[in-house]
């Protein structure tokens, strides 16, 4: 027995990446980024605000955090709703205490079902990032291109109608894209996407429909990864973020501005026994001379004034 001879052929084995989405770039050799006010580390905070239908869909895949038991899965349906009804308000209060403007990656279903939540986000000066339609709105290769284009449009249109502003940033569910996603997002006028986790600063992708900035929303630093997947405490999460800040602040002295994105989930971080650690972390960050809470769009525009 042998493998198909093609298995030992490497058609993309050449200088650069094995795809055409973006080129290779070394973070430490780029022109230094300068943040306003001499800050060293921009801290964009992204909150995922999600609605999980109690009837989950598996095409193209079932979203993380979705229903798990046989129908009807009250425990997961209501636990996720807890995040939106209660936990999210704890987070809003925490942001207000430190004067942080954040980016809320919102399913369009939240706007349709709970428009007052959107109005409250906008009134507080936070940014709406489009985050698909609802948690059945997953994207992966295999999703028909026309369906994906329609899903992106439905999300942007609904959020614009309720928020009064058309989102220019996008977060896919589970950061999952098809081969078409960057092009379809650029085509829809999206300037910033949060899906590719291969860098510590935003970088540009070029698509046949124009340029788009990818702002790497580090999944390793998310509450879902550290608390839900790795089963660590909120205190450990906060310690890890402080350690990351310390390191990046040091690097910024030599290499220019750095970015520390926080990605939090109301049904994870908004629980009574965790929110205190998160509030303390925000207070600590606010006290760091080099830290600047920024929206993802503000960070993108600082790095790429014209795109």
């Amino acid at each position: 027995m042998a493998l198909d001879p093609a298995y030992l052929e490497y058609p993309r084995r050449a200088r650069g990446m094995d795809h055409d989405l973006y080129g290779y770039s070394n973070l430490f050799e780029r022109p230094p980024v300068v943040w306003a006010g001499g800050k060293t580390v921009a801290v964009p905070i992204v909150v995922s605000l999600e609605w999980f239908p109690i009837v989950p869909e598996d095409k193209p895949f079932r979203a993380p955090g979705h229903m798990q038991t046989a129908y009807p899965d009250y425990r997961h349906y209501t636990s996720r709703e807890y995040g939106t009804r209660v936990g999210f308000y704890r987070l809003l209060d925490a942001f207000a205490k430190v004067g942080a403007r954040v980016s809320v990656a919102t399913n369009a279903a939240i706007a349709e079902r709970y428009p007052s939540v959107i109005r409250e986000i906008v009134a507080a000066g936070h940014e709406i990032v489009a985050h698909s339609t609802d948690m059945n709105g997953t994207i992966a290769t295999g999703l028909d291109e026309a369906d994906e284009r329609a899903l992106i449009a439905a999300s942007l249109d609904t959020l614009e109608r309720v928020a009064g502003v058309r989102p220019t940033a996008w977060a896919s569910i589970a950061r999952s894209q098809s081969w078409n996603t960057p092009r379809l997002l650029a085509e829809a006028g999206v300037r910033t996407m949060l899906d590719w986790v291969n860098d510590d600063l935003p970088y540009r992708m070029d698509t046949p429909s124009g340029g788009i900035v990818n702002l790497p929303l580090n999944h390793e630093l998310s509450d879902r990864q550290i608390i839900t997947v790795q089963q660590q405490s909120a205190e450990s999460y906060a310690e890890q973020i402080r350690d990351a800040f310390g390191w990046l602040d040091g690097e910024a002295q030599r290499y220019g501005g750095r970015m520390l994105p926080l990605h939090v989930t109301p049904y994870v971080m908004g629980l009574p026994y965790r929110i205190g650690a998160f509030e303390a972390l925000l207070a600590w960050l606010a006290a760091q001379p080099g830290a600047a809470f920024e929206t993802v769009t503000a960070v993108t525009e600082a790095v790429f004034p014209a795109i």
């Binding site: 992966a140 999952s176 098809s178 081969w179 986790v197 291969n198």
Partner: peptide, 17 residues
């Protein structure tokens, strides 16, 4: 299904950063 964005990009972080 390819592209596995997080799987690929996470490992690509090694060479960029």
């Amino acid at each position: 299904p390819h592209p596995d964005v997080v799987g690929y990009a996470h490992r690509d972080y090694a060479n960029r950063v």
